[in-house]
Design a protein around this nucleic acid. Structure first.
Lengths: 340, 340
DNA sequence: TGGGCGCCGGAAAGCGTTTTCCTGGCTGAA
DNA sequence: TTCAGCCAGGAAAACGCTTTCCGGCGCCCA
């Protein structure tokens, strides 16, 4: 198999020096005379030359790759974010390298190391931080090394000191949601909290609780569980089991993210509990699949695509702009109803 | 900012030659004595050395990147496939570079060129081919150049002569679906066909029609439209508009993919048409979000994750194994009912 | 004891670009 | 006409690795 044509092949074919060929084909501040320029271009076309990006990256010591780390591409939340990140990166002429961690913090750290080895231009890390000092510290250390080597990084989600971050306004969103639901007349709530070590989940629970308090309502019943759909399903079943005891009188349940809410909906349906007639359900994120659910799900909208876009900008900006939080907006739909 | 430590720094720090350091740190067939090996390892640790993959790729002329091209990461179909591809690639020690084309064939060709420039090890192309000879030809040419340069490629979806492909058995799946629906007593069908230039869509329509014919039923009413959710929504509305004329008597509608079916479901609901009481609906693919819909959607299951995995294997295999089609399996759910 | 052989280390030649100098020819101003 | 200054073009030194040789040493076997 004939190896790809190299720049040297082109130069020889055109009868010019390597330097000239490089200047013509891969851009430079320097000018090249019209005649030579055309000779080079013709030669390149004839040989089917394509720049070897790896070599280029080495010589320029700057790659045009952006690294993206997400938990799970098949989760709609990350799918939307990743899509936006890829799109925005392409707009900037960058290719995207993705890694999935499946919520394993070690994998996350490892992936940052891999991307650092690739000497990618920037890294975007999507996904919640964890309430584990030593793991967080190691991640930060890894990121610091990357940034120390001239790379740039941006996060989506929880803040990590010293790294630019697009933070969704989890507390405020959950706070407003609580007030809105209180406004519908609900007084007794349950919260499917997700795991207590996930800062995003914790923030939302706290914001929600604060919102209830502000409305003069008692603390909600907290039901922990995994952060995914099946976690929501199980938590909802736990809630049902408590109906006659601690959960008596609960008319509304808040799942700290949409996929959990979807799972909860499925559990309720499976157990013959009508939503919203018997119980109201709300989620958080506003993933796109929600609109096609019956009943459609009340949630707090996060500008997911926009967040992805902004993270790329943040990671590419030479100046580190302060990150204003991404505003969250309550969206009331069919899954929550007014009670007397 | 202190630039990253290089292998030469490590070698000097350890008092050995570059060659020895390389052999210790980045693998080699050759042995290195215990004493030196330890010196090198210690030096690397002290300096925080990380291999520069770009340089390594250049020197080895073989990268450890796999390129993935999909239409749209936020479409559940591609999200699942991409997830599997990333996962399997990681298992093989490869990083994945993704590109999204948003169904633009030019973008697809362009992305293959970009990946070729990166000299990625292999390319996986997910997404339907198009019934446009010249575009297809150019894509094939681009892939050929990539393979000519020593790369490997695999497709998911439509076959493209000379490239290894994981083909879902669209015809057979649609054929079986038609027979199953006929078995439920339906006789008059509509098909939301998607665009006529999408080979996947065409295959499914043809398979479905053939299945109906085999059951002794007349040809279905064909309603074209875009291949996405909103296309399904619009096509369903068109169907409703024809209820009293050409679509009279239609009791079952087949959307050639699930996201279209979801859109159709939404349209029917918006127009107060009960599914499955007034009309049955079926889709194709079995994307994961389906199970949480009400009514749950009848569909043809494709082993999406498995297809992604197999595509990676195909792209990595040195021997080009013949591609047996991925088998499609009819899954009857609540959205289709038995009629008298 | 001597001649192969096998191994371990190191020197150096790549891998395909970019970029810094250097050179020689022109231009324009004095 | 001369000289400073500019500019296009080329030679060659990076960029950070891998890998091919080559030399030297110890070992085994005759």
């Amino acid at each position: 198999m004939p190896r790809d044509a190299t720049l040297e092949d082109v130069a020889r074919h055109a009868g010019v020096s390597l330097a000239t060929a490089s200047r013509v084909l891969n851009g430079s501040t320097r000018q090249v005379g019209r005649a030579l320029r055309e000779r080079v271009e013709r030669a390149a076309a004839e040989l089917g030359y394509t720049t070897n990006r790896a070599a280029q990256a080495l010589a320029r010591s700057a790659s045009d790759i952006l690294g993206l780390v997400v938990h799970d591409l098949s989760d709609p939340y990350f799918a939307v974010v990743a899509n936006a990140v890829v799109r925005e990166s392409e707009r900037h002429g960058l290719s995207v390298m993705v890694g999935t961690t499946f919520r394993d913090p070690e994998a996350e750290i490892g992936y940052v190391a891999t991307l650092r080895a690739q000497r990618v231009r920037a890294i975007v890390l999507a996904g919640s931080r964890i309430a584990d000092e030593t793991v967080t510290e190691r991640l930060r250390a890894e990121i610091d090394r990357f940034q120390g080597g001239g790379g740039r990084a941006a996060l989506i989600g929880q803040d990590l000191l010293g790294v630019d971050t697009v933070v969704p306004d989890n507390r405020a969103g959950a706070y407003e949601l609580a007030r809105a639901l209180a406004g519908l007349g609900h007084t007794r709530f349950a919260v499917l909290t997700g795991p207590s070590f996930l800062l995003t989940a914790v923030d939302r629970v706290e914001g929600f609780t604060a919102g209830l308090a502000a409305a003069g309502l008692p603390e909600p019943l907290l039901i922990p569980g995994p952060f995914d759909r099946d976690g929501g399903y199980l938590a909802a079943e736990r809630l049902l089991a408590l109906r006659d005891t601690t959960a008596a009188g609960v008319t509304c349940v808040f799942a700290v993210n949409d996929v959990m809410a979807v799972g909860a909906l499925a559990a309720l349906r499976a157990h013959g509990v009508a939503v919203p007639e018997q119980i109201s359900v709300a989620g958080f994120d506003d993933i796109p699949t929600l609109r096609d659910l019956t009943p459609s799900l009340t949630t707090v909208r996060l500008p997911l695509a926009d967040m992805g876009r902004r993270a790329v900008e943040l990671a590419l900006a030479t100046t580190g702009p302060a990150a204003e939080p991404a505003t969250a907006e309550v969206v009331l739909r069919e899954s929550t109803r007014r009670v007397s």
